[in-house]
Design a protein around this nucleic acid. Structure first.
Lengths: 143, 143
DNA sequence: ATTATCATGATAATCATTTTCAATTGGAGA
DNA sequence: TCTCCAATTGAAAATGATTATCATGATAAT
């Protein structure tokens, strides 16, 4: 799976005429071996811990490339930070965001997706992507 | 309806020990007579057109108060701007956002809300709010 | 009216993100 | 392997949205 994502990114890089660099591979490794939903800054910290003298801007730029290549997706949880989650192709998931501890639980629900489609059809709307987040208190925090 | 919202805001102001001012009333009028989903800057432009010498900061502060008072709600559509929509109490709606022309269509769907609740229950999650946006091409742009 | 607060407007400060730019590096081709 | 050019990098400046600061002006309870 990591292999597949690495290949996907390298193919993207090649197809675009971009270059494969030490820094990009480092960020890629860190990203793939991290939890989903990390903010750019969190990723930056991890990369910097492993290595090094990598620049802030490089991490920003590289994460944007991940999104373009399709191995990652930008998400926003309302705090002012952009986060990136892993993308397994074809699949889409939504989120339960705990407003107390900040934890994020993913879920999928076919029935909801189907209803979304129906609603869109009613309006003659062609859905490309969607996002859905439920905010509240997670089970741990409720105890 | 506008009356009710004005009252709601004034009650909130009073309960908090805040003051009723010319500027707040101006922003309130502009907000209530505008479409939903306006960004802070758009609102600022409208207020400034009507009057005057109102400060940027005042509009920001006032919109935050609207959200706290419950007559408005912050929304984010992924462009980096905070928008505010009108809140009719109890009711919640979701959005169809056209990625081509930027138009926003609101919709409500009880069945989806119900399914969301079920999912949350499965995880022992207590939902406080949610947001859901479908991004794609609206009917006008598809023609 | 007096006074204690709160609010305002202008501006500076902040925070996340992007751009700039000179110096460096990857990699296609000689 | 060596050359060369376009792509990349890191540092720092720039940007855009939002928030804080502060001196001055307005509100409302006494």
């Amino acid at each position: 799976m990591k292999r597949a994502k690495k290949k996907q990114f390298h193919d993207f890089i090649a197809a675009r005429g971009l270059k494969s660099t030490r820094q990009r591979d480092m960020v890629l490794d860190c990203f793939l071996s991290s939890d989903s939903h990390l903010s750019t800054e969190e990723l930056y910290m991890k990369v910097r811990a492993k290595n090094s003298s990598i620049g802030y801007a490089t991490v920003y730029r590289t994460l944007k490339l991940f999104a373009e290549s399709g191995i990652a997706r930008e998400i926003h949880f309302g705090d002012g930070q952009t986060r990136y989650e892993h993308v397994a192709e074809g699949e889409h998931h939504d989120h339960l965001v705990c407003t107390r501890c900040g934890s994020v639980q993913e879920f999928e629900n076919e029935a909801i997706e189907k209803l979304q489609q129906e609603v869109a059809d009613q309006f003659g709307f062609l859905v490309e992507t969607h996002k859905m987040e439920l905010y509240g208190i997670c089970s741990k925090c409720r105890k």
